[in-house]
Design a protein around this nucleic acid. Structure first.
Length: 166
DNA sequence: GAATAGATCCGC
DNA sequence: CGGATCTATTCA
C-alpha cells in the first residue's frame, strides 16, 4: 500500500475532499475508511477558521498541504483536518466520518472519529506525507455517482455545497 | 482581564 | 433541547 503523496493534497480543496472518500487513514496501526468529508476553503469562506486571517491557531492552514490540523471544539471534542492547496492559501478538509474495518463499526462525526483513533492536539501539524505512523493510502474505488454533495453541517455561515459523502 | 461564540456529542 | 467544558478571539 502506497502512501498518498503531496500531489494528492496540493490540489483544489473541493476535489481533494471528493478524492478522500474511500481512502484509508492509518493511525498507529488503526485504520479508518473515509466516507464523509467537508471542504473549508480560503479566507473568503466565512466558516473557515482561517477566514479571520493568520493566527497561531490557523497558521497550519497557511502552510504546505499534506499536514494535519487538529483542534479542540466546544471544549470536548477534537476534529481532524488535512491541509490542502498551496502555501499561503489557507484551506483544509475536515474528516467527518468513516468506517473502521477492525472493529466493524461506522463512525459518524468528527469528534467520535478522533476519539476512536485516539487523536488529540498532540497530533496537530503532523506531516502525513512523510510520517510512518500517521498517513493515508488508497482504499476502495468510489464511483462518482455514489458521491453525494450537500451543504456543510454545524456551522452558521458559509453554507456552501462543500460536504462530500458516500 | 472578562465575555462570547464555536467545523460537537450525549442524555433527558 | 440543554449541558458539558476549553480555546481563540474580541472587547473594555
Amino acid at each position: 500500500m502506497n502512501k498518498l503523496t503531496l500531489n494528492f493534497y496540493n490540489s483544489a480543496t473541493l476535489q481533494v475532499a471528493k478524492n478522500l472518500l474511500g481512502k484509508i487513514i492509518h493511525f498507529y496501526g488503526k485504520k479508518i475508511i473515509i466516507n464523509e468529508t467537508e471542504a473549508y476553503i480560503g479566507q473568503d469562506d466565512p466558516a473557515c477558521h482561517a477566514a479571520k486571517g493568520l493566527t497561531a491557531r490557523t497558521e497550519v492552514m497557511f502552510g504546505r498541504a499534506g499536514v494535519s490540523y487538529v483542534y479542540l471544539i466546544y471544549g470536548m471534542h477534537y476534529c481532524l483536518n488535512f491541509v490542502t492547496e498551496a502555501e499561503n492559501f489557507p484551506a483544509a478538509v475536515l474528516i467527518r466520518g468513516g468506517y473502521c474495518p477492525i472493529t466493524n463499526q461506522y463512525i459518524n462525526g468528527p469528534g467520535r472519529l478522533c476519539k476512536h483513533l485516539g487523536i488529540t492536539k498532540n497530533h496537530n501539524k503532523i506531516d502525513i506525507v512523510n510520517n510512518e505512523h500517521f498517513f493515508l493510502t488508497e482504499g476502495i474505488i468510489v464511483l462518482p455517482e455514489a458521491i453525494h454533495q450537500t451543504s456543510r453541517i454545524g456551522i452558521s455561515q458559509g453554507l456552501g455545497a462543500c460536504r462530500e459523502s458516500i
